[in-house]
Simulated assay, not measured.
Amino acid sequence: MLFDSHAHLNDEKFAEDREETIRRAHEEKGVARIVNVGFNRETIPPTLELAETYEFIYAAVGWHPVDAANCTDEDLRWIASLADHPKVVAIGEMGLDYYWDTVPRAVQEELFRKQIRLAKEVDLPIIIHDRDAHEDVVRILREEKADEVGGVMHCFGGDQTIAKQCLELNFYIGLGGPVTFKNATLPKEIAAMVPLDRLVVETDCPYLAPHPFRGKRNESAYVGLVAEAIAEIRGLSVEQLQQATYENACRLFRLS
């Protein structure tokens, strides 16, 4: 029983075989639930369509920091209105991206704060995008009292110190393909130290495919490879790890 806690199955890379890709994950690989993430004007509508089409797919809606300059107050009102949708389970992904750094950091931060406040108003958990901005992300989460709704640090890339601070702020730690990479020391350290009841697994498909598919298109069917790698690191059976991360994701997204 697997839960892919972060996917982008609406991506154009799935245009030719989206239905088959979803079927393969659900029917062949035991992926019981998926949260698909829409993060701007273009990706939110197809994300909602997927959630409405497939019983086991849920939606998150928010605004990605690399698109922060294009987000209007009307867009934020739209996202807030979608919080009432029966399949919307989180606000995000939101946060800071200092890797691409295409949007002024002050603009990213302003939108990040607005979305945290929005999530608190609609009482939904938050999905965090944090790329090379760990200290600022944690500072803003703390200042905005994001622990009141909590959420998940998607594709966590920080060290153990940052992980501990995120855990204290009521956030789960999401791990994906990089934990399977041979020389990826830091994700393996995080996989070992995070309490089992605060870990979730994800693909971020079509990005970040796990070994042995690294460099190729990722898909939700591969989330089991992430679970297998973490189970080995922690000295658990694959079944134990799958069960724990499934229950964690259900608790995170408030699903029965």
Score class of each variant (00 low, 15 high):
residue 27 E to S: 12
residue 27 E to C: 07
residue 28 E to T: 11
residue 28 E to N: 12
residue 29 K to R: 11
residue 30 G to W: 02
residue 32 A to N: 09
residue 32 A to Y: 09
residue 34 I to L: 00
residue 35 V to L: 07
residue 35 V to Q: 00
residue 37 V to W: 04
residue 37 V to K: 08
residue 38 G to E: 05
residue 38 G to A: 08
residue 39 F to C: 12
residue 39 F to S: 09
residue 39 F to A: 08
residue 41 R to V: 05
residue 41 R to K: 13
residue 41 R to W: 05
residue 41 R to Q: 10
residue 44 I to Q: 02
residue 44 I to P: 01
residue 44 I to K: 03
residue 45 P to D: 04
residue 46 P to V: 02
residue 48 L to V: 03
residue 50 L to G: 01
residue 50 L to T: 03
residue 50 L to M: 03
residue 51 A to N: 04
residue 51 A to E: 04
residue 52 E to V: 04
residue 52 E to N: 11
residue 52 E to L: 05
residue 52 E to W: 06
residue 52 E to R: 12
residue 56 F to N: 13
residue 57 I to R: 00
residue 57 I to H: 00
residue 57 I to V: 07
residue 57 I to M: 01
residue 58 Y to L: 12
residue 58 Y to M: 13
residue 59 A to T: 07
residue 60 A to C: 11
residue 61 V to I: 03
residue 61 V to Y: 02
residue 63 W to D: 13
residue 65 P to F: 00
residue 65 P to M: 03
residue 66 V to Q: 12
residue 66 V to W: 08
residue 67 D to G: 15
residue 68 A to I: 07
residue 68 A to S: 14
residue 68 A to W: 10
residue 68 A to E: 15
residue 69 A to I: 14
residue 70 N to D: 15
residue 72 T to G: 08
residue 73 D to N: 15
residue 74 E to S: 14
residue 74 E to Q: 15
residue 74 E to N: 14
residue 77 R to Q: 14
residue 79 I to R: 05
residue 79 I to L: 14
residue 80 A to Q: 13
residue 81 S to V: 10
residue 81 S to W: 14
residue 82 L to P: 04
residue 86 P to G: 07
residue 88 V to D: 06
residue 89 V to N: 11
residue 89 V to A: 11
residue 92 G to I: 09
residue 92 G to A: 08
residue 92 G to T: 10
residue 93 E to L: 09
residue 93 E to T: 09
residue 96 L to T: 00
residue 99 Y to R: 12
residue 99 Y to H: 14
residue 100 W to K: 06
residue 100 W to C: 00
residue 100 W to E: 01
residue 100 W to G: 00
residue 101 D to Y: 07
residue 101 D to P: 10
residue 101 D to R: 10
residue 103 V to C: 01
residue 103 V to K: 00
residue 104 P to V: 06
residue 105 R to K: 12
residue 107 V to K: 07
residue 107 V to D: 00
residue 107 V to S: 01
residue 110 E to V: 08
residue 112 F to T: 05
residue 112 F to A: 05
residue 113 R to S: 02
residue 114 K to L: 13
residue 114 K to S: 07
residue 114 K to H: 07
residue 115 Q to M: 09
residue 116 I to W: 10
residue 117 R to L: 13
residue 120 K to M: 11
residue 121 E to W: 06
residue 121 E to A: 15
residue 121 E to P: 11
residue 122 V to A: 11
residue 122 V to Q: 09
residue 123 D to I: 14
residue 124 L to Q: 08
residue 124 L to W: 12
residue 124 L to Y: 11
residue 126 I to W: 04
residue 130 D to F: 00
residue 131 R to W: 02
residue 131 R to M: 02
residue 132 D to Q: 13
residue 132 D to R: 12
residue 132 D to L: 12
residue 132 D to F: 02
residue 132 D to A: 14
residue 133 A to R: 02
residue 133 A to L: 06
residue 134 H to A: 08
residue 134 H to K: 02
residue 135 E to A: 15
residue 135 E to Y: 05
residue 136 D to N: 07
residue 137 V to D: 01
residue 137 V to A: 03
residue 138 V to C: 06
residue 138 V to Q: 07
residue 141 L to F: 12
residue 141 L to H: 10
residue 141 L to N: 03
residue 141 L to Q: 04
residue 146 A to P: 01
residue 148 E to P: 08
residue 149 V to K: 07
residue 150 G to D: 03
residue 152 V to Y: 08
residue 153 M to S: 10
residue 154 H to G: 09
residue 154 H to I: 02
residue 154 H to P: 02
residue 159 D to H: 00
residue 159 D to I: 00
residue 160 Q to F: 13
residue 161 T to F: 13
residue 161 T to E: 15
residue 163 A to P: 03
residue 164 K to M: 13
residue 164 K to V: 09
